[in-house]
C-alpha cells in the first residue's frame, strides 16, 4: 500500500505544473491578447489618470452627485481592496438603525421628493462595491441632482438613460444604472 505514495507525490507535482502554472498562464496570455481592457479591471481613464473602474462603485455623499448603494466595507466605504457585505440578519436592530439613518439622510437631501425610496438605495450591497443602482433609485434622486446643478430634469434624465443598461438579451439580470460613469458624465457636462 505504501507504494501509492510515490505516484501520489509525482502526480501532485505534475498536476500543479499543468493546472497551477500552465493553465493560468495560458488563460492570462489569451485574456491579455483578446480582452486586454477587461482582463485588467475595466479601468476608466480621464486625462491619462485612472479614475476608477467601470465595474467598481465609488462612494458619493455630495447632493450634486447621484448616490450609490450603501457599502459595508471597512474602514472606508467602497474599499475595493477588501470587499465585504454587512452580513446583518433581517431582525438585527443594527440593520433597522442603519436603514433609518440612510432614509433620513436621503430625505434631508431632497425634502420635496415625496416618492417612496426604492429599497436598494438604503440597503448595502453584497460586495460593498456594487457599481449600480436601480433605475427607480436614479429616478428618485433625479430632481435633486438637476436642481443642484442647475440643469433641466429632462437633460439629467437623458444622461441617466445613457448610463442605464437593460436586461441582457431582454431577459437576464436586472435593469441598472452605473453610478460612477453617470457622475463622471455629469461632471464633464457641467464642469465645477
Amino acid at each position: 500500500m505504501i507504494k501509492e505514495l510515490k505516484p501520489a507525490l509525482w502526480m501532485l507535482l505534475l498536476m500543479s505544473v499543468l493546472t497551477g502554472v500552465l493553465y493560468p498562464a495560458l488563460v492570462t496570455g489569451l485574456a491579455q491578447l483578446l480582452f486586454p481592457h477587461e482582463a485588467t479591471g475595466s479601468l476608466l481613464e480621464n486625462n491619462g489618470q485612472t479614475v476608477g473602474s467601470n465595474l467598481i462603485g465609488q462612494p458619493f455623499s455630495d447632493p450634486r452627485y447621484f448616490w450609490g448603494r450603501p457599502s459595508a466595507t471597512s474602514p472606508m466605504p467602497y474599499n475595493a481592496a477588501a470587499s465585504s457585505g454587512s452580513n446583518l440578519g433581517p431582525l438585527n436592530p443594527a440593520l433597522q438603525e442603519a436603514v433609518e439613518a440612510r432614509i433620513t439622510a436621503l430625505k434631508e437631501s431632497d425634502p420635496s421628493q415625496k416618492l417612496p425610496i426604492p429599497v436598494d438605495l438604503v440597503t448595502t450591497s453584497a460586495s460593498g462595491l456594487d457599481p449600480h443602482i436601480s433605475p427607480a433609485a436614479a429616478l428618485w434622486q433625479l430632481p435633486r441632482v438637476a436642481r443642484m446643478r442647475n440643469m433641466s430634469e429632462q437633460e439629467v434624465k437623458q444622461l441617466v438613460q445613457q448610463h442605464t443598461a437593460g436586461r441582457t438579451f431582454g431577459i437576464l439580470g436586472e435593469p441598472r444604472v452605473n453610478v460612477l460613469t453617470l457622475n463622471l458624465a455629469l461632471d464633464r457636462r457641467k464642469p465645477q
Partner: peptide, 24 residues
C-alpha cells in the same frame, strides 16, 4: 419604514440587503 419594495421593471424590490443590483 415606507420603502418601495415591489418588483417592477424599474427596481428588483424585495430583500435587497446583501444583494447586488445587477442580480436582484
Amino acid at each position: 419604514l415606507g420603502l418601495e419594495t415591489q418588483a417592477s421593471d424599474q427596481a428588483a424590490g424585495g430583500n435587497m440587503e446583501g444583494k447586488e443590483t445587477r442580480f436582484g
